[in-house]
Amino acid sequence: MNELTRYDVRNYPPRQDSVPTARRRAAWLAVAWGHPQAAADVALLTSELTTNALLHGSVWDRYLRVEVQLTGAVLRIAVTDPKGERRPDPRAAAHDDQYGRGLHIVSAVSERWGAAERVVGKTVWAELAVDDSAPRP
């Protein structure tokens, strides 16, 4: 039986500086929870999901929520934003496009990802498999 072993949630204002702040927090949590080998991937996934929420789902006066959860051998990053009508949709990016690769990166790095509708907004999540036998702090 997988039981919830660790959980963290933080709200961030819809500003650019929230992306590196959320990324650092999520990577720190991966290390603190005994999975330092996953910290770089957790940081990358958090950065991509938070950036997408900021660019496509933010409203100036509504916070973004970043949840990091460790359940057994699965580490999940979930980012909630207030715009439910803007569903995540991977698109093709030209080689010189500045944007358009985020969900392809999420798909390549995570075991699986998806989106869930909420009463207000949506949550986009990604999951990583981690070594369940790693010692816990």
Rank of each mutant, 00 (worst) to 15 (best):
A53C: 04
L45F: 04
Q98T: 15
T51I: 00
A126R: 04
R62C: 08
P36E: 00
E117I: 03
W113E: 00
V59H: 09
V119T: 14
R23E: 02
L103H: 11
A32V: 04
G114N: 10
A73V: 02
T80G: 10
E111S: 14
Q37G: 15
H35L: 02
P88Q: 07
A53V: 03
A115Q: 09
T71G: 04
Q98K: 13
W33D: 01
A53M: 06
P36C: 01
L70Y: 06
G102P: 06
R25H: 13
K83P: 00
E67I: 03
V124S: 09
A78L: 06
R24N: 07
R10S: 12
L29Q: 05
S18N: 02
V42H: 03
Q98A: 14
K83L: 13
A73T: 06
R91D: 01
G34H: 08
P36I: 03
E127H: 13
P82T: 09
E85C: 07
A22Q: 06
L75M: 07
H95W: 15
E127R: 08
Y12Q: 09
A27K: 02
W60A: 15
E127W: 10
Y7S: 07
Y7T: 13
R118K: 11
G114I: 09
D81N: 15
I105C: 05
P82S: 06
V66D: 01
T51W: 07
L75E: 02
G100T: 12
R86Q: 10
E85H: 14
L54A: 08
H56D: 03
D41T: 04
S47M: 07
H35M: 02
Q37A: 15
L75Q: 02
A108Y: 12
D8W: 14
Y99F: 14
G57C: 02
R87Y: 09
T50R: 03
G102S: 13
L70E: 01
Y12H: 14
R65M: 08
P82E: 01
R65A: 14
T51N: 10
A40N: 11
V119L: 10
D97P: 08
N52M: 05
R15L: 13
S47G: 14
S18Q: 05
L45C: 04
D41R: 13
W125C: 08
A30H: 03
D41C: 00
A40I: 07
D61S: 10
P20C: 04
H35N: 07
G84I: 08
S47R: 10
T21P: 02
T71H: 08
Q69N: 07
V31M: 10
A38V: 00
K122W: 06
A53N: 08
Y7Q: 12
L128R: 07
A73K: 08
A93P: 03
L45H: 07
W33G: 10
Q98S: 12
R76Y: 09
N11M: 12
A40W: 05
P90N: 03
S58E: 00
L55E: 08
T51Q: 12
S110N: 05
I105E: 00
V19R: 06
E48D: 01
D97N: 12
V120F: 10
L75D: 00
G34T: 05
L128P: 12
E85L: 08
A38Q: 04
E117H: 14
A22P: 05
L64C: 06
R101K: 14
V130P: 01
A116E: 13
L44Y: 01
H95R: 15
D8N: 09
A73Y: 02
